[in-house]
């Protein structure tokens, strides 16, 4: 069943992708082929393969136990929050928090996780900014 759903989704993706290509406005300065045919070729490839999947699906994948989904959701949410918070809060704070969360999910005590995360984050922050000249956000709230 999963593969049928995935097949249907990829089929819709291919159709949408082709429709979007057909709406492209091409100026006079283009080459003979233009920007549309290559996307059409890809859409046909994906569309046909997706149809095959729709009619000949593989056996069900072994999904994780139900209690894993909230964990997965939490991690993904934290990654999104990380992207939004890294500039205002800075690399050190956000990375320490993210690493701590993951450490706890991997079975550490929170103080173990926090200690390890803080030490490692400080270490790589110094290594990359001072040693290797990579610029990482220091955090707007601190300056």
């Amino acid at each position: 069943m999963t593969d049928r759903i995935v097949g249907a989704l990829f089929f819709l993706l291919a159709v949408g992708y082709a429709l979007e290509a057909s709406r492209m406005q091409v100026g006079f300065l283009s080459d003979p082929l233009g920007p549309r045919p290559f996307p059409y070729i890809i859409a046909v490839l994906v569309g046909l393969s997706a149809l095959w999947l729709l009619f000949k699906p593989d056996p069900e994948p072994d999904w994780p136990p139900r209690r894993f989904w909230p964990v997965l959701g939490l991690v993904l949410l934290s990654l999104v929050a990380y992207a939004y918070l890294i500039v205002p809060l800075g690399f050190i704070v956000t990375t320490t928090l993210e690493m701590t969360l993951l450490a706890v999910l991997f079975g550490a005590r929170w103080w173990q996780g926090l200690g390890g995360a803080l030490a490692f984050t400080l270490g790589i922050y110094l290594l990359f900014t001072q040693g290797l000249g990579v610029s990482l956000p220091a955090g707007r709230i601190f300056g």
Binding site: L76, L79, V80, Y82, A83, Y84, I86, V87, F91, T95, E98, M99, T100, L102, A103, V104, F106, G107, A108, Q112, G113, G116, A117, F120, T121, I124, F128, V134, S135, L136, P137
Partner: peptide, 29 residues
């Protein structure tokens, strides 16, 4: 619990360093 989050932390630096743009971190997620 230490090793895997540490790898992820280095991934963040790698992704951020490409364009200095937090949008890439979103894309990575």
């Amino acid at each position: 619990w230490f090793l895997i989050p540490a790898v992820l932390a280095i991934s963040f630096i790698g992704v951020y360093a490409v364009n200095n743009n937090p949008f890439d971190l979103l894309l990575m997620a």
